[in-house]
Write a protein that binds this DNA or RNA. Structure first.
Length: 881
RNA sequence: GGGCUCGUAGCUCAGUUGGUUAGAGCGUUACAUUGACAUUGUAAAGGUCCCCCGUUCGAGUCGGGGCGGGCCCACCA
């Protein structure tokens, strides 16, 4: 019985079965790999997708790339570990669920209460999580499911609490004040990305605080000016220079203020009056100025957007009422200079459209500039910058190195408290002014826990080591904390592969937190992929409904085709569009690989009976394909190592299609025992291995017919045999191939017909198909090139066609159209003359000859000689026509 | 406003340190093909490498300026 593959490849039938076999093998877990103790580790932690929603093809791209790296390294003998997981994505998830509950039941989270609401969240999480894990598996991801993690599961909660405590003890975490975006209607803080901007018409008032204050200021919010403590001017501004540093006591609408004039180079002289009233408590920028200039902070507005106590008759008014009252007072006192209508960008709540009130409030921070004892006196920022500058961490593509450093250099303390319920509860307890940091409340009553939770990036920043058993896998040995267990084996990880859009949000935090907690970098390479856009070049998003579910694609094209289409034609750091055309092309290729295998195996009775390659008996075609194969192995492997996945895929596709399938396989058809050809079997096995990281399912499936003991998943990566690199064979083969093409074209245009000795060999029999002709020529290579007389007596015959292939002239007989042939030759002559003129010019240039590398000059000279000889031949031929 | 990035064939994109006549996939056209192939094969047509200036013997590639997309950040007091 010959090996018989089904006529059509049907991914649906195969993929689930194969995936189960992989799972059963246990090899996704590197502990089960049969490796020497010294085998190096290769670890990737999956950027945990948000459990807000199911995966789209962007995630599929992440999975495809990481699986490629993992499979490649596993086959190369590494202890390859890929840790899967999901992210609780605090704000995003809470919002999604809140919205859903409100839509379906008309209830807010406050209606439900903290416990009930969190319960509902967990229900939601379980559902999406299951979907995500299923999607990941269907992509063929060879992740170690036994190490599955969730940023909010128990081990991670433990790690987060330990981290918070450690940072607090080292002084890397502190409590301070900061301006937050407060929605007076929702009674809630908003993250920056929850603030929306709405353009609206506004009044821009220009006035003086009091008659004796030396300058006027402008604002759209006069009521907040009750809390001004300074006026900022540009240090270069000649009008105000003299006042810088002075403090003025003024009476502003009956409220006494002390206004200091400060210099700030961000103040634009041309805008308004060039003087800016500084209200530290109610503006982000003003708060910053207050910090740098050590200004007092006066809170004017409370959490209900009303004016606080202590502001005379304004107290108790709403902000809007107070604005009108202040304006009226200013007008009455003659202090108002003008009112302009301007278009203003108002910050509003994304949920209810209410105007945001920036308010100061108590928050927890990570201090990024503070020298830390456990980091040899370096700050988090310094250590994280040094890691990139020293080259311990490399970015791919490297332009992101600059973006990372820019971000880090401008980094300010990181506010980690969030006023939401879903997430890691801040492990801090209060009793009056007392503060206790720890997992559980201390002894005694009246301790209440901080109601806030931690920024989601705090837990995901710990991802490389929290997934590897930190803090339990740290132990004290000889007075030093050292790693053990998984943490010792797999940390630092090798590569972090993620989208460039979270370079700053996530990657920078991982680096800082790993340096702090483990004392080492979290990864050495950061590979940043672009976004997968829809076919119109738009970002995929749930609201636009243009997201593509990988499962839908897999259902029609298979996971292999999806993976291939995502990896070929996209480069690191650049966005790619997901298109049907590319998918179609990938799908065709998968099918092609199937058919190649089907053909190769079709005549094989017993694969083990096919002998070894005998290098003494190689035909020119054999030598050619082996040479090409070995070059491809090296080229392909190197490109993967350099993260050039697209180029790697193209290289191998070119080999598979253009060399193996279109020529070597065609040539082999001439020989009935071709399928038993050990070279062919060897080539097939090798490309299956090479393709495996790109297309794991189909390759593993075909592999299963080959009678191998090991699964392809864990078989050894091919090593190029450089003794088989044979440029002469390649040249000879190229010559014949070009000749065949030329003959075929000539024949299809009815320019030649079987006549001469040469053609008798080429067209064995007058009605023989061209394909067979091709095979005949190639097969003749088995006995050596010399037996084909490429230059025949045809040369002397008037209406022969002249073909020049790789420097060998060939004349073919035929009833040709002389006019057309003359036209063709003239055109060629013209092109050639132009090229010769250009090149002669260049070679005549003394500077070129003197300065260009010798190799280039020599090559150019040779080229010129070839062209000139070609030209002569054409002219000769033209004479005979 | 600041930073980064992209602009190459009809479309989607490659192009490694400057060095043959700038490439691929899809699409188009021609021819061939029913024994591995939901086809496939062979070829052809199609490009002022966004524009200008510069550096260089030589620029798609390096520098400056401009135009037009995209992303991130900061925001209009």
């Amino acid at each position: 019985m010959a090996i018989e593959l089904e006529k059509n490849y049907n991914p649906k039938d195969v993929e689930d079965k194969i995936y189960k076999e992989w799972l059963d093998s246990g090899f996704f877990n590197p502990d089960n790999l049969d490796l020497p103790e010294t085998a190096p580790s290769y670890t990737i932690v999956l950027p945990p997708p948000n459990i807000t929603d199911k995966l789209h093809v962007g995630h599929a791209s992440t999975l495809a790339i990481e699986d490629l790296l993992i499979r490649f390294h596993r086959m190369n003998g590494y202890r390859a570990l890929w840790i899967p997981g999901t992210d609780h994505a605090a704000i995003a998830t809470q919002n999604a669920v809140e919205k859903k509950i409100f839509r379906e039941e008309g209830k807010t989270r406050h209606d439900l209460g903290r416990e009930v609401f969190l319960g509902r969240l967990n229900d939601f999480v379980k559902v999406t999580q299951a979907t995500i894990l299923n999607q990941s598996a269907r992509m063929g991801s060879s992740m170690d499911w036994s190490r599955l993690a969730f940023t909010l599961d128990e081990p991670r909660q433990k790690a987060v609490q330990a981290m918070f405590l450690k940072m607090y003890e080292q002084g890397a975490i502190y409590r301070g004040e900061r301006i937050v975006n407060w929605c007076p209607r929702c009674k809630s803080t908003l993250a920056d990305d929850e603030v929306e901007y709405k353009e609206q018409a506004a009044k821009f008032y220009t006035f003086k605080y009091s008659a004796d204050f030396p300058m006027a200021i402008s604002t759209t919010r006069p009521e907040t000016k009750l809390g001004d403590t300074a006026v900022a001017v540009n240090p270069k501004d000649e009008r105000y220079k003299q006042y810088i540093g002075q403090t003025f006591a003024v009476d502003f609408c009956g409220v006494p203020l002390n206004i200091k004039v400060i210099a700030d180079r961000n103040v634009e002289m041309e805008f308004g009056t060039g003087a800016l009233g500084v209200t530290p408590a109610h503006s982000m920028v003003d708060w910053q100025m207050a910090q740098t200039n050590d200004l007092p902070v006066i809170k004017v507005i409370d959490e209900n957007a009303n004016i606080r106590e202590g502001f005379g008759r304004f107290s108790g008014m709403t902000a809007m009422e107070a604005r009108a009252a202040v304006v009226a007072d200013l007008n009455a006192a003659g202090l108002m200079i003008k009112e302009d209508e301007i278009a203003n960008n108002l910050s509003v709540c994304y949920r209810c459209d209410t105007g945001i009130e920036p308010l100061p409030s108590k928050q927890w921070f990570v201090a990024v500039d503070k020298p830390l004892a456990n980091m040899n006196g370096q700050s988090l920022k310094q250590a994280a910058i040094a890691a990139a500058e020293k080259g311990d961490i490399k970015f791919i593509p490297d332009r992101f190195n600059k973006r990372y450093l820019d971000w880090m250099n401008n980094l300010r303390d990181w506010c980690i408290s969030r006023q939401i319920w879903f997430g890691h509860r801040i492990p801090v307890w209060y009793k009056g002014e007392e503060i206790y940091v720890g997992e559980n409340a201390p002894e005694g009553s009246d301790w209440t826990q901080d109601p806030d939770t931690l920024d989601t990036w705090f837990s995901s920043g710990m991802w490389t080591f929290s997934t590897l058993g930190w803090p339990d896998n740290m132990e004290m040995v000889d007075g030093k904390m050292v790693k053990k267990g998984d943490l010792l084996k797999f940390h630092p990880t090798q590569v972090l592969e993620t989208g460039y859009e979270i370079l700053t949000l996530w990657v920078s935090r991982m680096i800082m937190m790993s340096l702090f907690a483990v004392g080492e970098i979290p990864f050495s390479d950061v590979y940043l992929h672009g976004m997968v856009l829809d076919k119109n070049g738009k970002k995929m998003s749930k609201s636009k409904g243009n997201g593509v579910d990988p499962l839908d694609v897999i259902a029609t094209a298979g996971a292999d085709a999806l993976r291939l289409s995502l990896m070929v034609g996209s480069t690191p750091g650049n966005d790619t569009r997901f298109s049907e055309e590319r998918l179609e092309s990938a799908k065709n290729f998968v099918n092609k690989l199937w058919n190649i295998s089907r053909y190769v195996l079709s005549g094989v009775e017993d694969i083990r009976a096919v002998g070894e390659i005998n290098s003494a008996e190689l035909t020119v075609a054999d030598a050619w394909i082996l040479s090409r194969l070995n070059k491809t192995i090296t080229d392909f492997s190197e490109r993967i190592t350099r993260y050039e996945f697209s180029l790697a895929g193209e290289t191998l596709r070119d080999f598979t299609l253009n060399d193996l399938a279109d020529w070597y396989l065609e040539a082999s058809k001439f020989d009935n025992s071709a399928q038993k050809n050990p070279v062919l079997i060897h080539a097939l096995k090798t490309i299956l291995k090479l393709w495996h990281p790109f297309m794991p399912f189909i390759t593993e499936n075909i592999w299963s017919y080959l009678g191998e003991e090991k699964m392809l998943l864990v078989s050894a990566w091919p090593i190029a045999d450089n003794t088989l690199i044979n440029d002469e064979a390649e040249n000879n083969f190229a010559l014949v191939r070009d000749l065949i093409v030329a003959i075929r074209n000539a024949r299809s245009e009815n320019k030649i017909e079987p006549a001469t000795k040469v053609k008798a060999l080429m067209f064995a029999g007058d009605k023989t198909e061209l394909l067979k002709t091709q095979s005949a020529i190639i097969s003749s290579l088995r006995t050596g090139l010399s037996e084909i007389e490429f230059v025949g007596e045809a040369q002397k015959i008037a209406d022969a066609i002249f073909v020049s292939v790789a420097g060998v002239e060939i004349y073919l007989l035929g009833g040709i159209d002389k006019d057309k042939e003359r036209e063709r030759l003239n055109k060629e002559k013209e092109n050639l003359s132009k090229l010769i003129t250009n090149l002669s010019g260049r070679l005549a240039n003394e500077e070129f000859v003197a300065r260009a590398p010798e190799k280039i000059v020599a090559a150019e000279k040779e080229k010129l000689a070839n062209w000139q000889s070609d030209l002569e031949k054409i002219e000769e031929k033209l004479k005979t026509l």
